[in-house]
Amino acid sequence: MSSITVTVQETQTQASGAIVLATGAAARLAARKNEYTKSTSGLAPGYLQANLMILPSKYASDFRDFCARNPVPCPLIAESCASGDYATLKSYLPSVSGAQMARELDLRTDCPKFNVYENSQLTLAGTPDIVEQWTADHVAFLVGCSYSFESALARAGFPPRHALLDRNVCMYRTSIPLNPAGVFTGGTYVVSMRPYKKADIEQIRTITRRYLPTHGECIAWGWDALERLGIRDIDMPQWGDAPLTMDGRPLGDVFGNDDDVPIFWGCGVTPQEAVMNASLDGVVMAHAPGHMLVLDCLEDHVIA
């Protein structure tokens, strides 16, 4: 696994202090070696990123059905080729093979941080690897991530604010019910949020709409969306960092401002919320929210 190498030319630092790596392989190696432990937003611009969910094999069929019935927050893009296989993937993207997704892969180490659940309860948050927890019975699933349209937003002149401020995107539990599937019942959508000017919302919608396997178009926008989504406090996300204005104030301080309008997308943390609302036996593992698996295929490979 260690034959992946990263050269000096592959690494640079933005003015904000954020590290940028040139390839998905470089991002995975940095995570594997614990040399990169922050949010992967903007880490390898142009490369597809994925949420990770790892389940005992007896829940695999129910999880596939769950993703099929909830394609906006849970767009399934790949899974491990067999139970216990942490190195090869079966792709669900029509234009990308499993081999093209990620070379020299180790799903146990290649996210910067992981979460571990035992009997549906979060027992370990932000651990650097899941080597000890992985078993021959585990099946891994990759779910599309909205980080994968952020390069397109940046190219169009709309870089996400959390990336500019070197922060993790904010994520919220909503009151929108998920369609149940097998053991996965009772959960609700998780959404990510990025603020933009009201005048730019239509362009933002148009750009992200084409990335259907990575959540696609936003599902809600505007300050009144908080009530519709059941979000009580914009400054208190359940995952990620609290949103800020560009001058560092809590976003709630400018409630109603047309220059700081919240826009919400489906979020791949939704499966972790679903796990916590299910009664699953055994150990479930996932990426830590915001700390994704960066792949070798490009974001443009998923454009509809």
Rank of each mutant, 00 (worst) to 15 (best):
L153W: 03
I204N: 00
N257K: 06
P250I: 08
C218D: 05
R167A: 04
G256E: 10
L244R: 13
G240A: 05
V254W: 02
F255I: 14
L251H: 05
P180K: 11
R232A: 13
K197I: 06
D233S: 09
D166Q: 13
R167V: 08
K198A: 15
R232L: 10
C218T: 01
Q203K: 10
D258Y: 11
D253G: 01
R161D: 01
Q238S: 12
T174L: 09
R155K: 13
L164V: 10
T245W: 03
G230N: 04
V254C: 02
G240Q: 11
R232G: 07
R173V: 15
D241W: 04
G186W: 03
R205S: 10
R167E: 04
E217L: 03
P243R: 02
T206R: 12
M193D: 00
Y196P: 01
F158I: 04
I204D: 01
D253M: 11
S175M: 08
Q203C: 04
R194K: 05
E202M: 06
G248A: 11
P250D: 13
G256Q: 14
I204T: 00
G248R: 10
L229D: 01
L244A: 06
D253I: 13
R228Q: 09
D247K: 09
Q203V: 08
Y196N: 07
E202W: 09
M171Q: 14
C218R: 00
G230S: 12
P213Y: 08
D233M: 06
G186R: 02
A152F: 11
R232H: 12
